[in-house]
Amino acid sequence: MATQDKPTAGGVVALAAAVAACALCLLPAPARAQLRVGFYDATCPNAEALVRQAVAAAFARDASIAAGLIRLHFHDCFVRGCDASVLLTVNPGGGKTEREAAPNNPSLRGFDVIDAAKATVEQSCPRIVSCADIVAFAARDSINLAGSVSYQVPAGRRDGRVSNESEANLNLPLPSSTAKVLTDKFAAKNLTVEEMVILSGAHTVGRSFCSSFLDRIYNGSTPIVGSGLSAGYATLLRALCPPNANQSTLTTTAIDPSTPAVLDNNYYKLLPLNLGLFFSDNQLRVNATLNAFVNNFAANETLWKERFAAAMVKMGHTEVQTGRCGEVRLNCSVVNPTSSSAELGSSAPAVDDEGVAAS
């Protein structure tokens, strides 16, 4: 009968460390290492500048990319936390990825900008800066370019190794969401009702495919009257979108028809005029509690921008992996190759809570 080799002392220690680290990753975020502003000051001091340059170059070519990068961060954080899982093109466990889910495909964009930023960062500081942090930096830089809003991003996120289409379908709020669904989905991510209204203001930039609002302008092939859209706006949308439009119909329209490339509070001013494009936008108007916040932000752009920056920072802490959890991906689209010495999914050098490479 064949005998099994006895594990070496070193192997037992390594296995115990791996198990302990995996258990740590399952703890609530407050029990783990926290994100920190200036996390890469010692290991990659030019990381944020390099990301900013990549975003600025893309913005100069197409200002609408800012909306795409803001949305990319949002859709990343709402599924498995802010771990860059939305960037993966292959799920090691099999099945479709988040990128292939209906809320993301074909509307989600900005992947090429993240890849460009990652490439320049890797040239300067190999295997140090996570894709999840790059996504957070890129969203911040997009907000600054589109709305002149500045804030600091705490960093130290690690990249996840799982990306499931089904989880994206389950967790992401949809343009058809009711007020209750919206508040429940945001509450599940530790975001308040007010923060939900604040973050919805990101709809002041960006574009939408016809399929996201088709049920507001047609019932089958019959035009709808009284869906919460002004008659004139609905007529314009019907001229743009045929009743048989679907996800393969690539026609788009600005979500904010007045200032579509500027991150401002115009979104809130449009809602009382029945110019909220999505059913979910109109829910903020017809729900009394939510509408009170809408009125506050419509009247005070400075207040909204301040709270928007704070809400983005808070959202960026959602279910993060830090310390030895997760990995630092070498290529944002695929997980790192596994090895016996990287059982936790990281072939990059471990970085401690101060952003310093561990021995």
Rank of each mutant, 00 (worst) to 15 (best):
A9I: 04
G11A: 11
S221C: 05
L108E: 11
P272N: 08
S211T: 09
K314S: 03
R109H: 07
K118L: 13
I128L: 10
L172F: 06
G147K: 06
L271G: 05
S230A: 10
L50Y: 08
P260D: 06
S124G: 01
Q34C: 10
N219A: 06
A29R: 15
P154K: 08
G93H: 00
D281S: 06
V334I: 12
S258F: 13
A2P: 14
R99D: 14
F78N: 04
S227T: 14
G201L: 01
A57W: 03
G94H: 04
P28M: 02
L145E: 00
D62N: 13
V335I: 15
F293Q: 09
L26K: 04
L170N: 15
A254Q: 08
A311M: 11
S107G: 08
Q247R: 12
T97A: 00
D133K: 09
G232Y: 12
A20M: 06
A42K: 04
C44V: 09
C44I: 09
V19D: 05
D141I: 01
V197A: 04
R324K: 12
S64D: 15
A298F: 07
C125M: 04
V225L: 07
L275D: 04
A14H: 00
T249Q: 11
V12Q: 09
F111Y: 15
A57L: 02
A202P: 02
D256K: 00
W304R: 00
L182W: 02
K305D: 07
V13F: 13
V55A: 01
Y233N: 00
E194H: 07
A136E: 01
T8L: 03
V79S: 04
K118R: 11
A58I: 01
T192K: 13
L69R: 06
P126K: 13
L182Y: 02
L170H: 15
E301R: 08
T120N: 03
E195N: 13
V286F: 02
V262D: 11
F137Y: 06
A49N: 10
E319C: 14
I143F: 01
V90A: 03
V129R: 03
E301W: 05
A357D: 02
S124D: 13
A261D: 15
S230I: 09
G38E: 13
E98M: 14
A245L: 10
E100C: 09
D256N: 13
E354G: 09
T249L: 10
V37Q: 11
S230P: 05
A132C: 10
A234H: 04
